[in-house]
């Protein structure tokens, strides 16, 4: 064997930081107004003025939820790569490689453990930028691991869903993530720990037909698209135009499918309050300011400290 095959390539993707915007200005998808990217970023990716909720990457989301923007990245199980040896217009392995380079993530779900307004919580975030946040074996294992960790830590579990649905390139094995993640939810339920789902834009397909609709409390971000079947499929099936606001967060709330629509700026206090109420933890007089909490080390087995710039 040629010794050159053992050469480890430098990890270029760790040098490339994706929070450097390619464009300094972005256009609001809702109103069309041009806004300065830095202003949007510092406003938790909500467009100042229009209040349009842009998609939020996994790391930014974790920063917005955990105290002091500090948490442990939970080590996630390795899964068998490309079980179907799938290719469509391109090879699945190549698509995965590109997604990893683009996002710096291993797959679409990131799991963190840390404190939220002082209390321990496990948070899983789906990143839409990684192949549309699709649910495959790696994402399924990540959610199961996160739910197991919540049981071990006796802490609530929060998932931020964002997904186009099942990862079709993994075929039936992606469908199997519906029952697999449901097993995880059942373990949490049996441990009598709260499970809160935050539906973000967009959450559709198989993801909604499993863990994303099984929360004790279902929250959605304003304007988020949430639905099982795609709008085009429905229109083609029934040959009718869809009603105004169909499959949007507010529409689901009005039809009794979710508990509340919450502005991103209010999410953390809402989630923390719900966790305290459901775990019968004492009320806190006023939400502690982030700086007042010492960046204390939380012991999380199988967890490695996240590196944040």
């Amino acid at each position: 064997m040629n010794w050159l095959t053992n050469v480890v390539r430098p990890k270029i993707r760790s040098i490339l930081k994706r929070d450097t915007p390619e464009n300094l200005w972005i256009k609001c998808p809702d109103t069309g107004q041009l806004v300065f990217y830095k202003d949007v970023e510092s406003n938790q990716f909500v467009i100042p003025g229009s209040n349009y909720h842009m998609r939020m990457g996994a790391t930014a989301r974790m920063k917005s939820i955990f105290d002091n923007e500090t948490w442990y990245d939970v080590a996630l199980p390795e899964v068998i790569a490309d079980p179907l040896k799938f290719r469509d217009e391109r090879k699945y392995v190549d698509r995965i490689k590109d997604a990893r380079t683009k996002t710096g993530m291993n797959d679409s779900v990131k799991v963190g453990y840390g404190r939220m307004e002082g209390s321990g919580v496990v948070v899983a975030v789906q990143d839409f930028d990684f192949m549309g946040g699709s649910l495959g074996m790696a994402a399924g294992e990540a959610l199961v691991r996160g739910l197991e960790l919540a049981v071990e830590k006796k802490s609530p579990f929060i998932v931020f869903a964002a997904s186009g649905g099942a990862r079709m390139q993994e075929g039936i094995l992606s469908l199997m993530q519906l029952p697999r993640t449901t097993v995880g939810v059942q373990m949490l339920r049996e441990a009598k720990l709260p499970y809160i789902v935050v539906l973000t834009n967009p959450t559709t397909g198989g993801v909604t037909a499993s863990y994303a609709m099984l929360g004790d409390v279902q929250i959605a971000e304003p304007g988020a698209l949430i639905g099982f079947a795609g709008a085009r499929v429905i229109e083609q099936t029934i040959r009718e135009k869809l009603p105004e606001g169909f499959q949007r967060a507010e529409y689901l709330r009005d039809h009794g499918m979710i508990d509340m629509v919450v502005h991103r700026h209010d999410l953390k206090p809402t989630l923390a309050r719900l966790c305290r109420l459901l775990t019968k933890s004492p009320a806190i007089a006023s939400p502690p300011r982030a700086e007042s909490i010492p960046a204390e080390i939380l012991v999380a087995p199988d967890a490695v400290p996240a590196a944040h710039a």
């Binding site: 449901t182 037909a209 994303a212 099982f228 429905i234």
Partner: peptide, 23 residues
Amino acid sequence: YPGIGAEERGQAEAIARSTDACL
């Protein structure tokens, strides 16, 4: 079934609960 009514009445949630019930 992909339809307006099915979506409004929570098709996804119904499927999730049914899988949950099986388990």
